[in-house]
Design a protein around this nucleic acid. Sequence first.
DNA 1: GGCGTATCTACAATCAGTGTTGATAAACAA
DNA 2: TTGTTTATCAACACTGATTGTAGATACGCC
Lengths: 146, 146
Amino acid sequence: MKTPEELTELFRANGRKVTAQRQCIFRVLQGDVSHPSAEAVYSSAVREMETISLKTVYQTLHDLAELGEIASLDLGTGMIRFDPNVDDPHHHLVCRHCGKVRDLVAAFPDLEIPRGADLGFEVGSAEIVFRGLCPECQQSTLQPST
Amino acid sequence: MKTPEELTELFRANGRKVTAQRQCIFRVLQGDVSHPSAEAVYSSAVREMETISLKTVYQTLHDLAELGEIASLDLGTGMIRFDPNVDDPHHHLVCRHCGKVRDLVAAFPDLEIPRGADLGFEVGSAEIVFRGLCPECQQSTLQPST
DNA sequence: GGCGTATCTACAATCAGTGTTGATAAACAA
DNA sequence: TTGTTTATCAACACTGATTGTAGATACGCC
């Protein structure tokens, strides 16, 4: 993701206005590796601007996604997650217990679909979701007496 | 997925009761390759039993998923999709235009995560989602004049 | 500083899915 | 077959994430 300053320029270059709310959201997303939901971005943003509304957060996140500066992901955790890392291709680790999401930066070159198996689909992208338990949830789900 | 008769036995063996509604749902799912949502299963079921309720469909689908007879998938189409094919391992093709889902039966052996890249996650499964356009939507999204 | 328009907040509405409750019917035994 | 127990049913209210609406506000530009 670009810096808040670069995003400010980009928004203006696209005829979008830059408000204090939006810059607040730009800052909150900087270096956030947690793949936050809109609610999570909102609660971070509220700490800086008590008056910001959830709707504004949703709208700005959609704007950023539309401009390709963040990715919006549905990883089956019940909420759309937002990923500021759009610069290097990667896949995702998802904790099936707490919903934590992390990037897995690794190339899997052999995702070619065998001839004839694509059922006529024109495939544009492939995402891999690795499901399991994050380190913290491995602790809390240990069997009590074994 | 098992046949309606086998599912009837399985439900009884698990202390569940077998009702006309449930058998109707068993039948509807047989050989359904469309990965229907609960609503889609409901609208098929209603054609056989006008009085069946959506809640019953949800409940039965959850029961089937709990018994491992169908899989419930969140593929980012906005609804949980149900997949009666749990017998051979496969991945999914998802149309980004109409949300159509199809099985892609192919093994991708090289999904080993490089040492140290798993961030401490204990990974249990990997799903691959191939996104693109289904044959029908390739037609309807053709550029008008090129 | 002032104007035009995008954006803001607040609030209502949507949509998929879940919780509740009294009525119904499956399972099983007599 | 009938009775008893208990899971399941349908109807309806409700949740939680997200989106739509509308009047007030403030950005960008002169």
